[in-house]
Design a protein around this nucleic acid. Structure first.
Lengths: 145, 145
DNA sequence: TATTGTTATACTCTATAACTATA
DNA sequence: TATAGTTATAGAGTATAACAATA
């Protein structure tokens, strides 16, 4: 007789724990983004462009932001209309070269201090050193070891 | 002269790290759910019902699964049609009493072993004890200390 | 032929407000 | 009046396939 496969307790589910933690962070963060008419995903794109050294292709962006091509294509179109970013065609004409615009940088500059404050509130829940440890473990899970 | 507010590196963003980790877990998990025609959210509902001692109200479910009422109402209707769950009206006729059905339990029973295997692959990336530590830190962030 | 990106399409979830029924 | 839940509506992301342009 085998013991029945016992599903782990709901509370011990790693995806749920990750989601709860993320939800608790994002709950503080979303209102800030909403004030600037940005979705979470648009913010990811903006951050990635802002952090990049040079232009990124659509594919680069998709990989860095975990967005799918079609979603990204539409978002880029609307963000380009809002002049948050600029796109050029590179030497390889298939490849788009996307960079953040001055306006985009301005928005990042406005949102960043508010977002820092929100993050700090969350991080204050941890003892010194625990944040580093959390990042280390998350990176291990995420395959960035 | 103030130093400019320096946004933390993209890689050190806690929400991004949480998302990457979750994505890496879910990437293995979603195909399993897809085979059983379940969305991530429906699975959360099913898990919550399966783990519950008795019937849950729509509000209980919303809180446990981090879904909004309207999303949940529609999902419950379709899951009821698929006979994954049952609903009754309680003593307080405003309150629905939702329980998992035999069919729902059967689905949970099918998905669970596969999902356990997927989780274990992820958890193998961690040293012994690190998973507990990760859960502890995530709960602290999530406000479940 | 393979790669890069867009368009088409259908579905699902998010979010807010308005509404119904019950308490 | 307040609470529980549903319906309405608009918007946005997900996912797959088909397609165009370029290499």
């Amino acid at each position: 007789m085998n013991a029945p496969v016992r599903i782990r307790a709901f509370e011990r589910s790693l995806p749920m724990a990750l989601m709860r933690a993320r939800e608790s962070v994002m709950a503080r963060f979303r209102p800030i983004l909403a004030e600037h008419d940005l979705t979470e995903q648009q913010w990811r794109v903006l951050r990635a462009l802002d952090a990049a050294d040079g232009p990124l292709s659509v594919g680069d962006l998709a990989a860095q932001t975990y967005l799918l091509g079609p979603s990204l294509a539409r978002m880029l179109a609307s963000m380009e209309q809002r002049e948050l970013l600029e796109r050029r065609t590179g030497a390889d004409a298939r490849r788009a070269e996307i960079t953040i615009s001055d306006e985009g940088r301005r928005v990042v500059g406005q949102v960043s201090p508010e977002s820092e404050a929100a993050y700090e509130q969350v991080e204050r829940r941890l003892e010194p050193g625990e944040l580093d440890e959390l990042h280390r473990l998350l990176d291990k899970i995420g395959g960035f070891e």
